[in-house]
Amino acid sequence: MLHSVTEFILIGFSTFPHLQLMFFLLFLLMYLFTLLGNLLIMATVWREHSLHTPMYLFLCALSTSEVLYTFAIIPRMLADLLSTDRSISFRACASQMFFSFTFGFTHSFLLTVMGYDHYVAICHPLRYNVLMSPRGCACLVVWSWAGGSVMGLVVTSIIFHLPFCGPNVIHHFFCHVPPLVKLACGTEVQIVAMGVGLVCIAALLGCGLLILLSYAFIVAAILRIPSAEGRHKAFSTCASHLTVVVVHYGFASVIYLKPKGPQSLEGDTLMGITYTALTPFLSPIIFSLRNKELKEAVKKTFLSKLFLHRS
């Protein structure tokens, strides 16, 4: 399909001209911390043999998807905060949308898989090694990445097959679906936009409902444990995952389930930041602080060696 638009202009932070340097420093620090936190988790799981279990395999895959998701969006956003030229080519915009949706949905699918892993561990402990065999876990990870790739490809293909006749100004800081749909021309735009929205919401709600179902069975099983110490130990294994799920779906619902109506550019930009920068920033903190086994492994593997080296 031919397009009269060959590039777009991202103006997400143009309404905050006096705050752009402050935003750059803030988001740069958050991005570096996100990278450091996730790479630390991945390296700890890789080096510590006691963590070579399905739960930490899924956590490694989750950290990988988070690193790639932020890499698809934030470096470009940081560059635009310091530049007066915020143009992005048609192909680069499509690539950014594909990768952001691929890694974003992979993240959601992996959170669902982790919920299933907790369900099997607590509700069917005697069958855990059979149900969560190394091959089965690898398949779950591969299917999560494949599902994310399919979602990214479907959404990006649909959006970028729409005709773009101009204008070419995207009222956002990255190539996101709603502001791009507003720039498309033609009679089918609203139908396509509704279809894409329903596909995204259905996928997110499907993952959310599966996680809720897993935790319904988990809570029922925990309440049947006779000792308070046993109940606390069982719930503590799920605490970090459950917290990340609440943060992830809480901010995702702000983006995808907000009521239709006139939205200011400032509001859309700030809401987008919560999901693209704040959620990945919080995730490694939550997993590191709420997971005692991982926290001890980080201290043993890296911090102790750092202090020994200094002494």
Rank of each mutant, 00 (worst) to 15 (best):
M1N: 07
M1Q: 03
E7I: 01
L10C: 03
S14G: 09
T15S: 11
L19M: 10
M22P: 14
M42C: 09
M42L: 11
A43F: 02
H49I: 14
L51I: 09
H52G: 00
P54A: 02
L59W: 05
L62Q: 02
Y69E: 00
F71W: 12
A79F: 15
L82P: 00
S83T: 13
A92K: 09
A94V: 10
A94D: 08
M97E: 02
T102P: 00
F105I: 04
T112V: 11
G115Y: 00
R135W: 01
G136L: 09
V141L: 07
G148D: 00
L153H: 12
C175H: 11
C185G: 13
G186K: 00
V199I: 12
A202L: 07
L209R: 04
F217W: 11
A221R: 15
I225M: 11
G230M: 07
R231S: 11
S240K: 00
S240A: 08
V246P: 06
F251Q: 02
F251V: 14
G261N: 07
P262E: 12
E266T: 07
T269W: 05
G272D: 02
G272Y: 11
T276I: 11
T279H: 05
I286Y: 00
S288R: 02
L294C: 00
E296M: 08
K305S: 14
L306T: 10
